[in-house]
Nucleic acid binder design. Structure first.
Lengths: 191, 191
DNA sequence: TGTACATCAGTGAACGCGCGTTCACTGATGTAC
DNA sequence: TGTACATCAGTGAACGCGCGTTCACTGATGTAC
């Protein structure tokens, strides 16, 4: 049965958001098109009225979550952002957490479209973080530091998640990297 | 046709090593048992004479590559190790590169056995790196720094790989993180 | 504004395909005498 | 040492299953008059 244009658009957005959460939680290969549509409240047949393929949806789901991340970090200090990012809560809440940390392993083996989306997501996050500081005199150094911290934060979450749930090492990695990044940031203010 | 005990053991080791390379290159879900056995020079039926399941092999393949990494880094300075690790060559040679960087995204969604293997691999690498320095007075600080650098290095490779092949950002991430880590290490010597 | 018709979002059965795993079989290896 | 037999690594067909995708169909929505 046909549905209004506005409703169809809303349904589509809902499917993208559901996919974004499920992919982050279970990985690209861990969710089927049918699972995904059922989770969104539809049957699988309608999928191809909205998307060309599962891979296309992956690119859209990633783009959507990156845009959301950038808008969520609006008006947040870099310190507060990394404190949230490098927490056990974030590590344990994969479905609503950072898409880079959840899916960059999968992304590396996917289509150019998905990988372009990731590159843009990374670039946007670096730009966003750089624009937090009004000091433009050492913009290059800020970018350098931001890249290092982002790599460290993503790496820490991913390594921590690859350990067993009750592993002391999993917690240690998170805690050490958070302390290190916050120390770097406060040293930067002083220096 | 039956094969000598020694031959069977050698064949088994060869399958583990082939799997280790293929999983790193294509991901756990990207390689089938039949593909894998064919790549090792066998038919798929014999697989279950050696392994209980594909998941069991994953744990063995990871353990094997971790052991190899530790032995390969024998008699190598930490500086030389990170210089190799944070290179475009390493990023582009996934099949023979670091298993953490290639598979920790997959590992996070796998069995406790696989995740224990990863935790042990991380622990071994930290221990190995700590033992490079004869200075035991600040062992704790050294461990902290090693965890930070490992997270940053793994994160940098993974983020770089998630960008398109020709992306300037992909190279920038590698180059910036290598420079940062080497600078930290030389500051440490002075400090 | 009311009517007739085209559109198309959503349904659910069906498609071919490749997956992990099982199994009866083969024949060289290992073993007991 | 030689012989008879049990073992078992490796083979290749077959299994059930779930995957991504297609398709004929439905019926409310959108549109033309």
């Amino acid at each position: 049965m046909r549905v209004s244009k506005a409703q169809a658009q809303a349904n589509r957005a809902h499917i993208v958001e559901t996919a974004s959460r499920l992919f982050r939680e279970l990985g690209y290969d861990g969710v089927g098109v049918a699972d995904l549509m059922a989770a969104a409240g539809f049957t699988h047949g309608g999928f191809y009225k909205h998307f060309g393929s599962k891979a296309d949806l992956m690119a859209e789901a990633a783009a959507s979550s990156f845009a959301q991340s950038v808008s969520n970090s609006e008006n947040m200090s870099v310190e507060a952002l990394f404190t949230m990012y490098l927490s056990r809560q974030h590590r344990d809440a994969r479905d609503v957490g950072c898409t880079m940390a959840a899916l960059c392993g999968d992304a590396a083996r996917q289509s150019p479209e998905v990988r372009s989306t990731f590159a843009e997501g990374i670039a946007d996050m670096l730009e966003k973080a750089g624009s937090e500081s009004p000091d433009t005199s050492n913009a290059e150094q800020q970018r350098t530091q931001m890249i290092s911290m982002l790599a460290q934060a993503v790496g820490a979450i991913m390594l921590s998640r690859s350990c067993p749930d009750d592993s002391p090492l999993a917690d240690e990695i998170i805690d050490v990297c958070r302390a290190q990044i916050l120390a770097n940031l406060s040293a930067d203010v002083k220096g």
